[in-house]
Amino acid sequence: MNIQNIITKVSSGTDLDFEESKFCMNEIMSGQLLPSQFGVIMASLAIKGETFEEIAGMAAVMREFSIKIKGKENAIDVCGTGGSGLKWLNISTASAIVLASYGIPVAKHGNRAASGNSGSADVLEELGIKISLEPKVVEKCLHEIDLTFIFAQTFHPSMKYAAPLRKEIGIRTIFNFLGPLTNPANVKKQIIGTPNKDYAKKIAQAGKKLELDRIITISGESGADEIEIDKNTYVFDSKENFSENIFESRKNLGSSRHLEVKSPKESAKKILSCFNMKSESSDEEKKAILNSISINAAMALHLAEENKSIDECFQIAKENIFNGNALKKLDQLKDFTNRS
């Protein structure tokens, strides 16, 4: 096997198998590819459509090249691929904090914004969290407070070879789908959101190939990488053999127009406002943000505790906001990261 064989195969529209995909990513992560070779492979994969075997194979090698931390039993990750273009506040980041406030360990893997107005790293900085930490500190944080942030730029140093080349070619590539599958804490359960319904199923299948115990991928009807509050959401669950299910929007959860933000600062302000709520509100913006964070936290809680229904989990998420637990967990994360 050599890289020319890979180029010949993908440029003719032929799929790579798992091992070929691993070989290709190993060459990329080792800095062995010429920019022209990288460009033709990425473009050819995008044109023909990436398969779950290709996603899984490349993600497996990205995992091998990452800096790892010791995970915590039953820890999960809640994240999205980004790329929706909807400019919403950081719903998965907020829902991860709510989830951890209930006692579910969360190893939140994330990065700065690529196409949106606020990435998870950006909003956490605005919330006072120190994101650039030594891996041992990140690990300790997970084990001591059941919540940690794994900053992708720190934990994936070999991306230095691919990052500038991705920027040069300027199109969506398979890398858009790989990040969520490469959590350095080796979580076994994940919720992953993606704006592309077709790729939601492929990412779920790739997660299973990578031996996740259970993975649920979601894709909103309007292209959100979150569960939507005013439209239906497509759900693919490895437990249900990746069949397409529709998560129907609940009545009176609010309008998604209230979720829009222009900056990480605005996103942080809206999350803090939500975490300071003591009860339901008639204010339409507060209502929409509360319900969006809570319904996304509910799906993750259902993943962690399968015996609980989504509706039960939805109420639990709200209760952990109203009783101050979510705000306390955020303060714990802030205190831990800034004293380390």
Score class of each variant (00 low, 15 high):
Ile289Asn: 01
Ser44Cys: 10
Lys328Phe: 02
Gln153Trp: 07
Gln315Val: 06
Asn111Met: 13
Leu127Trp: 08
Thr182Arg: 00
Asp198Ser: 11
Gln190Ala: 15
Thr93Trp: 00
Glu280Thr: 01
Leu33Lys: 04
Leu301Ala: 08
Glu19Phe: 05
Ala121Trp: 08
Asn276Leu: 11
Ile129Thr: 06
Arg339Ser: 10
Leu45Asp: 01
Glu312Ala: 01
Thr8Phe: 08
Ser219Phe: 03
Ser101Val: 06
Ile41Val: 10
Ala152Arg: 09
Cys79Gln: 14
Ala200Gln: 02
Gly193Pro: 03
Tyr161Pro: 01
Thr194Arg: 10
Ser256Leu: 02
Leu327Gln: 13
Leu34Thr: 15
Phe247Met: 08
Phe275Arg: 05
Leu210Tyr: 11
Lys22His: 03
Gln32Gly: 01
Ala200Trp: 01
Met159Gly: 11
Ile316Met: 09
Ile191Gln: 04
Phe247Ile: 03
Ile145Cys: 03
Asp17Cys: 09
Gly223Ala: 09
Met42Trp: 01
Lys278Arg: 13
Lys251His: 07
Ala75Phe: 04
Asn5Lys: 04
Phe177Trp: 13
Leu165Ala: 06
Arg250Thr: 00
Ala56Asn: 05
Leu212Ala: 05
Gln32Asp: 03
Asn276Glu: 15
Cys79Phe: 12
Pro135Leu: 08
Asn325Ser: 15
Ala163Leu: 14
Phe151His: 14
Phe247Ser: 04
Ser267Ala: 08
Cys24Leu: 12
Ala43Gln: 10
Glu266Cys: 02
Ile215Cys: 07
Ala121Glu: 14
Asn26Gln: 14
Lys202Asp: 12
Ser66His: 02
Lys208Arg: 10
Cys313Phe: 02
Leu212Gln: 07
Pro157Thr: 09
Asp198Gln: 13
Phe242Glu: 06
Ala298Trp: 05
Gly85Cys: 13
Ala113Trp: 00
Leu181His: 07
Glu221Thr: 12
Val187Phe: 13
Ala75Ile: 09
Arg112Trp: 05
